[in-house]
């Protein structure tokens, strides 16, 4: 059995000094309390602040993924017709190869291939006039062929390979050099063909 814990609370009378202090402090607190405006004003100010910050961030380009209107985009250059990185060097190589006409073409092998015997590993056979390239797009080819990304000493031999190799006038689009006896193929696998027909 729990006894009653309730205490008869006496009613206390405030001292006059304390009462005066309470009134004075409450008046000071009311005077220093911030008078808040309505909530819509706060919301409007917050929205304006966010808009200004976002605009400044956009103009200065600090927003990730959003380019500043004042910064120039890097110009995109069209891909060169040839894979050569330096067109001047390529032109020089072309001149050299003009002088060193490939004997395989000159000695009538092209006839054996019906003008379409040299292929640069392309997936779609282009209109080929006996010139070969490793490029994916057909181009006006004047007998100089390269699939390389850099110009190389071209002696009239053409390849679609990424590395120069000892070329003896045989042309291939293969990734590996093969025993070529003047016959040219666009195949990816080496083959042996001596019948002048392109496989």
């Amino acid at each position: 059995m729990l006894p009653d814990l309730r205490i008869d609370v006496p009613e206390l009378e405030p001292p006059a000094v304390l009462l005066e202090q309470l009134a004075q402090l409450s008046r000071q607190g009311a005077a220093s309390a911030p008078h808040d405006g309505p909530g819509i004003v706060k919301a409007f100010l917050a929205a304006v602040s966010v808009s200004v910050l976002a605009s400044v961030a956009w103009l200065t380009g600090t927003l990730p993924g959003v380019a500043s209107p004042f910064t120039r985009e890097p110009e995109t250059r069209p891909a060169p017709q040839h894979a050569a990185a330096e067109p001047g060097t390529l032109a020089l190589a072309d001149e050299d190869t003009e002088a060193d006409a490939p004997p395989a073409v000159a000695d009538g092998h092209a006839g054996a291939h019906h003008g379409k015997a040299q292929h640069g590993g392309r997936t779609t056979p282009p209109q080929d006039n006996g010139h070969h390239t490793g490029q994916t797009k057909p181009h006006q080819n004047n007998g100089h062929h390269t699939g390389q990304t850099k110009p190389h000493q071209n002696n009239g031999h053409h390849t679609g390979q990424t590395k120069p190799h000892q070329n003896n006038g045989h042309h291939t689009g293969q990734t590996k050099p093969h025993q070529d006896n003047g016959h040219h193929s666009g195949q990816t696998k080496p083959h042996v063909h001596g019948n002048g027909h392109r496989s």
């Binding site: 009462l19 005066e20 309470l22 009134a23 607190g29």
Partner: peptide, 23 residues
């Protein structure tokens, strides 16, 4: 009224709560 600093209001609040606050 207590917020405005009225002494009577504070007296009323004090009478109502001061005793049990001390207890």
């Amino acid at each position: 009224a207590a917020k405005r600093g009225d002494q009577d209001a504070w007296r009323s609040l004090y009478r109502a709560h001061a005793g049990r606050l001390v207890v």
